[in-house]
Design a protein around this nucleic acid. Structure first.
Length: 370
DNA sequence: TACGTAATAT
DNA sequence: AATATTACGT
């Protein structure tokens, strides 16, 4: 060991929180240890999407992202776009392969530094300084063009985020009394963030519905996933949601069946002059239970509660997120669908598409009108 | 291997 | 309550 770590070197980095992203467990462990040796606070993630979730969750103030350039779930340029551009957190990339073009490309895309593995202690020693390099405001470029004024991003309402986050005093992070399952700490004391649950926002769910509409009978988890084309969304997410969706469909059908049964009995009774003075249809409409059922059936059966959630998932720019190579289908509908999702990084106009009554079909109409 | 379903866990 | 995970049969 030619690098000796002195105690005063420790203090230099001790306020800097690094989000370490590497799919390789060994790298993750080693680099994490090295970082902690210098006094960095380390949060680890194995996938780009996990890292993104950590950042979006804003539970920790990340000063620096140190990420392996080759991650299984995201291309390095996409990683830079999604994380660096949206959060403004400085990103340092690392990789074993040293392709000059790639390095320059990453720098051009906003990376602070591209380090070639293996990472040495020296590589990490001064890395904290990047947390203090002012980041360009890249959100303004779009707004300047469109002439729209800066919309205050609402998460600044927390009023805290001033990066870099050098804690005064030796501020310990939240301790175990506040940890309820989504976090844990390994034997090193390295904080490991478990992947947060996916929240099916209205937008996400709409996209899901659209995919199902387009696919029709071929709507299976895999195909839906591909068609939705949402970074970070996994097949299991879709499968789980699909299961729930189908269950609710089934319940809906049963409800309809019940109403029809009641209707027919009433009709039957009326024809037997038991209730001859009532118009069966009228009875049906005014019969409290059946009415509720009819109303219930009109509503969107799958309306997930709106929550303040990972705007992350939907605010991710969709453009260029198909490096993972979606198979292009010849289906016209599919192409339309893709275009639509990729057009603006916005899924759908926020107008009054989403009203209660049968907004599925409204959406679908809108889809074809696109 | 992917899928669907039910049961169960978080 | 919503979502994730697991087990198991297809």
């Amino acid at each position: 060991m030619d690098v000796s770590v002195e105690s005063d070197t420790n203090t230099v980095c001790s306020g800097v929180t690094v989000l370490l992203v590497d799919s390789d467990s060994t790298c993750l462990t080693i680099i994490s240890k090295m970082l902690r040796t210098f006094g960095y606070q380390v949060i680890t993630a194995k996938r780009a999407t996990d890292a993104f979730c950590v950042i979006q969750a804003r539970e920790y103030k990340i000063d620096l992202v140190l990420a392996e350039a080759c991650l299984p779930d995201m291309d390095k340029y996409e990683l830079l776009e999604t994380i660096s551009d949206t959060s403004g957190i400085p990103i340092i990339l690392m990789s074993a392969d040293y392709d000059r073009k790639a390095v320059v490309g990453c720098l051009f895309k906003g990376a602070m530094l591209y380090m070639v593995k293996p990472i040495t202690m020296d590589d990490l020693k001064n890395m904290w300084q990047f947390a203090f390099v002012p980041q360009p405001e890249n959100e303004s470029t779009v707004d300047e063009i469109s002439g729209v004024e800066d919309a205050p991003s609402m998460e600044s309402a927390t009023g805290v985020d001033e990066r870099p986050n050098l804690r005064k005093g030796k501020g310990k992070r939240k301790r175990s009394d506040e940890m309820q399952g989504d976090k844990e700490e390994d034997n090193d004391g390295t904080v490991i963030q478990k992947k947060p649950k996916l929240i099916w926002t209205d937008e996400l769910h709409d996209r899901f519905l659209q995919a199902i509409n387009v696919l029709g009978i071929k709507a299976h988890p895999k195909t839906i996933l591909e068609l939705m084309n949402v970074p970070g969304l996994k097949k299991v997410n879709v499968a789980s949601h699909l299961q729930k969706y189908r269950l609710s469909l089934k319940r809906q059908q049963e409800t309809i069946q019940k109403t029809m049964d009641i209707g027919s009995t009433l009709e039957h009774a009326a024809s037997n002059h038991v209730l001859s003075e009532f118009d069966p249809l009228d009875v049906l409409l005014n019969f409290p239970d059946t009415q509720t059922m009819a109303v219930a059936q009109q509503q969107d059966i799958t309306n997930c509660p709106t929550q303040e959630n990972l705007d992350g998932y939907m605010s991710v720019p969709y453009t260029d997120c198909n490096q993972t190579g979606d198979e292009v289908t010849n289906n016209e509908g599919l192409e339309l669908f893709q275009q639509m999702g990729n057009s603006e990084g916005v899924l759908m106009e926020e107008n009054d598409i989403f009203n209660d009554e049968d907004y599925t079909s409204t959406l679908f109409d809108n889809f074809w009108d696109w």
